[in-house]
Simulated scan of single mutants.
Amino acid sequence: MSGPATSHLATLAQGTLLAQEKAKVTNWPGYLGWTVGLLVLIGLVYWLMRQGWNWRRTLQSDLAALPAVPASAGPVILETSGRYHGTTTAGNWLDRVVAHGLGTRSRADLTLGEHGLLVLRPGDVDLWIPARNLTGARKDSGIAGKVVPAGLLVVTWTNEGTALDSGFRADHPDEHAAWVEAVNELATRTTKTKKTEEAAP
């Protein structure tokens, strides 16, 4: 068969194929089903994350209340601005502490004074670490599930006998070395003073 009849059959076949392809492309019930399923999955994951966060907060409910935040940190040693990345139990960078607002990342203004470390967190809970609670500082690459190749400033301190690590990143990370030195020096000086006072009759 040739001629007009063949051409007509070919046109019909092509039209049928195009109609089938169009039907596939405009399969709205199928697309809507996949979209709803994906949204439900995202909602479930978010709910599980919230449940895990609340469960961790419940487990850490025995963590003592944080020291009250004073008006100032005393004579200023160092100041900087940056980000607060979280707090963990000392030596365990994956054990995030969420009690008392310590689990929320935020902007932070840090002031190291003779009386301790004052961390002001706009829109979040401020943190005060008295000098007597400071045990040291170091530069590290990660904390609380957050890895920063350029490094973090990690301050180690105690709260009613619980050893903690708090991670910060200054807007200018080259300041970290000076902070490590200053915090360690303050912690050592305070420890010596405390021992001298305890030894006095």
Rank of each mutant, 00 (worst) to 15 (best):
V148W: 04
L120A: 15
T193K: 13
W93G: 01
V98I: 02
V148S: 10
P130N: 10
I77Q: 13
D109A: 13
I129W: 03
R105M: 13
L110R: 06
R83T: 12
T80Q: 07
H100Q: 11
H100C: 06
K195Y: 01
L117D: 04
S81M: 11
A131T: 08
A187E: 05
G142N: 13
G101D: 05
E198R: 15
T89K: 11
T188S: 15
K194H: 14
K146L: 09
T188N: 14
N159C: 11
W157G: 02
A150G: 10
G167A: 14
L118A: 05
T80E: 12
V147L: 13
L102M: 13
A108Y: 02
T87N: 03
A131M: 07
V180C: 04
H115A: 15
E114V: 10
E79I: 01
L186D: 05
T188I: 06
R189K: 14
W128N: 05
D171I: 00
L186A: 07
S81K: 14
A182N: 04
H85F: 14
E175S: 12
G82W: 07
W128Q: 05
K192H: 12
L186H: 08
H176D: 08
D140H: 13
T193C: 01
T135M: 11
T104N: 08
H172R: 13
T196V: 05
T88P: 06
W93R: 14
G101L: 08
V180E: 04
V180F: 01
Y84W: 03
D165R: 02
V154W: 05
A163M: 08
W179T: 02
T188E: 15
A178G: 10
L120R: 15
A178W: 00
D165M: 01
P122A: 08
G86E: 04
S166W: 03
R138D: 08
P130T: 10
G136A: 06
A144L: 04
L127C: 07
A99F: 03
A178K: 09
L164Y: 08
I143K: 04
L186K: 07
T158P: 01
V98Q: 01
E197I: 10
V180Q: 03
W179I: 02
L78N: 06
D95V: 00
T190F: 05
N159V: 11
T104V: 10
A131V: 07
L127K: 05
G91Y: 08
S141R: 15
V97C: 04
T89S: 05
R96E: 08
N159Q: 12
G123Y: 04
R121I: 03
T135P: 00
H172C: 00
R107K: 13
T135H: 07
T87W: 02
R105L: 11
D95Q: 13
A178H: 02
L118C: 04
L102K: 02
V125F: 00
A170I: 00
T135D: 09
T196R: 14
P173S: 05
A150D: 15
E160R: 14
